[in-house]
């Protein structure tokens, strides 16, 4: 059974201060989690007491100001950050799309990047070969697939990243705000694919500032502020069903 459950998850990490000759700090702004001090060290409280539960078919939208902890939370869900306290239990195969350039090699072609990405996600070469045509078709990159990744526009990179990540039928898909980089036609296509994924009883967690996107994709909405959950709203499912038909 595909599910995500977080219990009182907190994440704090130390900021390492370096010896520096530059003027003392005006580097730390008002955004982000709380920066506190403990024993002479700076500690960032990136997440505090986050608890929620998602079941198969749920699509959660994460909202909140810059630095509220949205990406951090996604990275905790993906297993990149280990929480400092609390428990995370996840059932299902997770894939994630963070910053577009993460995990892509600028010098390699789009095709080669798909192969690398597949290997990293644990597919065999045969599986990658089998999925390749579908990924290329979905991305609509055409001949650009054999051109180095560094020449791609943000939108083209987003197409490649999204096509590759969703081609492996992830059961849980984590996405950071970037999908806006694709053009309207691709966003529509991406939305349809996310619908399919959710209908196959998958879970989607999407961090975004794009209200329209959140509105059309998500069934639940969680607002984060300073690393804490401010609200968690479940929208009536009727609307989703209606949209799926249209």
């Amino acid at each position: 059974m595909i599910s995500v459950k977080l219990d009182n998850v907190s994440l704090a990490y130390r900021l390492y201060e370096k010896l520096t000759l530059s003027a003392p700090d005006r580097r730390l702004g008002a955004l982000g989690g709380t920066i506190g001090r403990s024993g002479g060290m700076q500690v960032v409280q990136a997440l505090e007491d986050v608890s929620f539960e998602l079941k198969a078919g749920d699509r959660l939208g994460l909202v909140g100001p810059n630095g509220a902890g949205k990406t951090t939370l996604l990275k905790v869900l993906y297993g990149i950050y280990q929480p400092s306290s609390g428990t995370v239990s996840i059932e299902g195969k997770v894939d994630a799309l963070f910053n577009i350039n993460i995990g892509f090699r600028p010098e390699a072609t789009g095709r080669r990047n798909i192969v690398l990405r597949g290997l990293i996600s644990g597919w065999t070469e045969a599986e990658i070969e089998q999925k390749m045509p579908e990924i290329i078709t979905f991305s609509e990159l055409g001949d650009f697939i054999d051109v180095p990744f560094k020449t791609y526009s943000q939108g083209m990179a987003a197409r490649l990243a999204f096509s590759a990540a969703t081609a492996l039928d992830p059961e849980i898909l984590l996405m950071d705000e970037w999908i806006g980089a694709g053009d309207a036609a691709f966003q529509e296509k991406a939305k349809r694919r996310m619908d399919e994924l959710a209908e196959k009883a998958g879970i989607i967690v999407l961090a975004s500032h794009n209200e329209n996107l959140l509105e059309s994709v998500c069934t639940k909405r969680m607002t984060l502020k300073n690393g804490r959950v401010e609200s968690f709203i479940t929208r009536p499912t009727k609307k989703v069903g209606a949209r799926a038909k249209s």
């Binding site: 990275k75 993906y78 297993g79 990149i80 994630a96 963070f98 910053n99 350039n101 993460i102 995990g103 990293i120």
Partner: peptide
């Protein structure tokens, strides 16, 4: 860094 922060390898 980009792989360590973006993948679970």
């Amino acid at each position: 860094g980009s792989f360590i922060q973006g993948t679970r390898l």
